[in-house]
């Protein structure tokens, strides 16, 4: 029972509940759920970095690579979701590994903005590439699942199931990783890097590993998003304001728990959906206003509500 703690149990309960809910959920709710899982995965990557004291304003880079890698493979005839998502995830992970050699040397604002710079290079490349539809992007055909080709509503049901299973595995995996010695190094690096070095660990290596991790999950989120929506375009996949949304979700969630990122992503999607529905001309204000409110009243994110609740219980 060494690995089973409250978080793992909570995630498992949520997993089982959602697994059954998949078959009863309203279509629109499932669709929002899918997007929340995809965005939440990226926020999970940011959470891993955040705990190390690093904020990235450029994770749309890995989200975009994941999405475009999966989408481009459909152009050349690959349609299996397992393969597409794996390819998107690995492509992002590989890029994160390579860029990590440079980025692990930077901290604070330099780290944040260098990430943004790289993501905007990807954005620029996509915008200039007419074969990839420039700013329009292109449509992604419905995926198959190991030979099973669902039709109609079953497409989203299957994709949700697929996403749920992998998100569960990834999230529990990240949680367990954060409990290991190397994972636990996050806070140490954030608080005092020199001490970490004297203890015999390389802070840069610690950061590099976490960076690759965050790249992998962001790529996973991107690939899922491409399949869920059936369209990729640079403004929704690789632009800096997409990176900003991920930071927004991370602030909204708080970094207290890996599961929080999905709740944060869901809240974000719901705010956006309803703001868009009821205030079509000022929905951006509502989104910005809610971020402001979170920062002012819940500086540690939604998760701090749960912490507060527990304190009052105890």
């Amino acid at each position: 029972m060494r690995y089973v703690d409250k978080t793992v149990v909570g995630l498992s309960i949520a997993f089982v509940v959602l697994l059954f809910a998949d078959f009863f959920m309203a279509e629109w709710m499932r669709f929002i759920g899918l997007q929340s899982l995809a965005r939440g995965a990226v926020a999970l990557g940011l959470l891993v970095l955040w705990r190390t004291g690093l904020v990235s304003f450029g994770h749309a880079l890995y989200f975009g690579i994941g999405a475009y890698a999966a989408a481009m493979l459909t152009l050349v005839g690959y349609h299996d979701a397992f393969f597409l998502v794996l390819a998107g995830t690995l492509a992002s992970g590989l890029l994160a590994f390579l860029l990590g050699f440079l980025l692990r040397r930077y901290r604070a604002i330099f780290f944040a903005l260098l990430n943004m710079a790289f993501s905007m290079i990807l954005y620029g490349v996509i915008v200039k590439t007419e074969e990839l539809g420039s700013t329009d992007g292109f449509s992604v055909l419905t995926p198959t699942f190991l030979g099973y080709a669902p039709q109609g509503e079953a497409v989203q049901t299957t994709l949700f199931l697929f996403t749920l299973v992998f998100t569960y595995i990834v999230t529990v995996g990240v949680h367990l990783y954060l409990k290991t010695t190397l994972g636990g190094m996050s806070m140490a690096v954030r608080e005092n890097e020199i001490r970490v070095e004297y203890l015999g660990y390389s802070a840069e290596k610690v950061i590099h590993v976490k960076y690759v991790f965050s790249g992998l999950v962001a790529g996973f989120g991107g690939a899922i998003m491409a399949l869920a929506i059936g369209q990729v375009d640079p403004d929704s996949m690789a632009n800096w304001n997409v990176s900003g949304e991920f930071v927004f979700i991370t602030i909204l969630s708080g970094i207290g728990n890996v599961g929080a990122t999905y709740i944060g992503a869901l809240v974000f999607e719901l705010i956006r959906t309803y703001a868009f529905e009821y205030a079509p001309q000022v929905w951006q204000f509502i989104l910005g206003g809610s971020l402001l409110a979170i920062i002012m009243f819940l500086p540690d994110g939604i998760w701090s509500l749960i912490d507060r609740l527990r304190k009052s219980e105890g």
């Binding site: 978080t7 309960i13 709740i263």
Partner: peptide, 11 residues
């Protein structure tokens, strides 16, 4: 506590 809240919120 936490576990149920997490699950409950999603449910």
């Amino acid at each position: 506590g936490k576990a149920a809240l997490l699950a409950g919120g999603l449910a």
